[in-house]
């Protein structure tokens, strides 16, 4: 701004910045994640960060802002609530212990998706939920949180993906499915460490890139009087098709 006094001739002002893309990790660190699962998860997120950075080199006008919510017996900010620029982001390792407060995690997320807290010009946010078990909070609380997420303006617009960790008998697929708004992707089932790494990378990279791509054109054919169901904002490339190899002796 001091330029104005040095320069001779007109000088224009106004701060220029990239548009933000808010990225939220919602990570289950309940007791059942203990051991190999949490170690793989920590490693996978660490590996995903440079991949997102690389993928977004083609979109330098996007500023990805990272945050993470960890939930076990309760939910709290693992990184945040102040968002960290992707290029400055490092993943502090998580330790597993306690129950599975998924609903509280979503409630915490909702606080930050508030219409007054988000930048109106921002790209659709990305929310990736990682969990290996049943939500231990009352079903109504989980349902209520999901409903609020479905109705919040930014919750609707967000790209919400779920990665289920471990054996299908240990988590509630139907409940997790309610979190995602991309039924064509469904619940990504990471039943091996390899798949977990692959899915975390795929979900975070694809969602970020898709969200930062060009506009969407409001073209709703919604139910009369409805508040815009199906106003989904982002089209995702399809999830990685993993080759079916029975590696059943891998303990998870």
């Amino acid at each position: 701004m001091s330029e104005e006094f040095i320069n001779d001739g007109p000088v224009l002002e106004g701060e220029i910045t990239k548009r933000p893309l808010q990225f939220f990790w919602l990570v289950d660190c309940s007791g059942s994640m203990r051991g190999k699962k949490i170690a793989t998860l920590n490693q996978a997120i660490r590996e995903a960060v440079p991949e997102i950075l690389r993928a977004l080199e083609a979109h330098p006008e996007v500023q990805v802002m990272m945050r993470a919510i960890a939930f076990s017996s309760s939910a709290s900010w693992h990184v945040g609530p102040e968002a960290v620029k992707l290029e400055d982001f490092t993943w502090p390792p998580l330790h597993a212990d306690g129950y599975t407060a998924t609903a509280s995690a979503i409630e915490l997320l909702l606080e930050e998706l508030d219409i007054d807290k988000m930048n109106r010009r921002g790209f659709p946010p990305v929310c990736v939920l990682l969990s290996d078990g049943y939500c231990t909070e009352p079903e109504e609380q989980y349902e209520r949180a999901i409903r609020k997420l479905d109705h919040a303006p930014w919750g609707k617009k967000a790209v919400r993906l779920v990665i289920a960790i471990g054996d299908g008998s240990e988590y509630d697929e139907q409940a997790l499915l309610r979190f995602t708004n991309h039924p064509e992707v469904g619940v990504l089932k990471a039943n091996t460490p390899g798949k977990l790494v692959e899915y975390i990378k795929w979900a975070s990279v694809t969602a970020s890139v898709s969200s930062s791509q060009s506009k969407t054109f409001y073209n709703d054919d919604e139910v009369e009087g409805g508040e815009g169901e199906g106003a989904r904002n982002v089209i995702l490339a399809s999830a990685p098709q993993s080759i079916q190899i029975e590696d059943a002796n891998e303990v998870f």
Partner: peptide, 16 residues
């Protein structure tokens, strides 16, 4: 500004 249009969403001459 249209408060209800957020997250890179817009209307256009080709909207329904």
């Amino acid at each position: 500004a249209a408060e209800r249009l957020i997250a890179n969403e817009t209307h256009s001459l080709i909207s329904a």
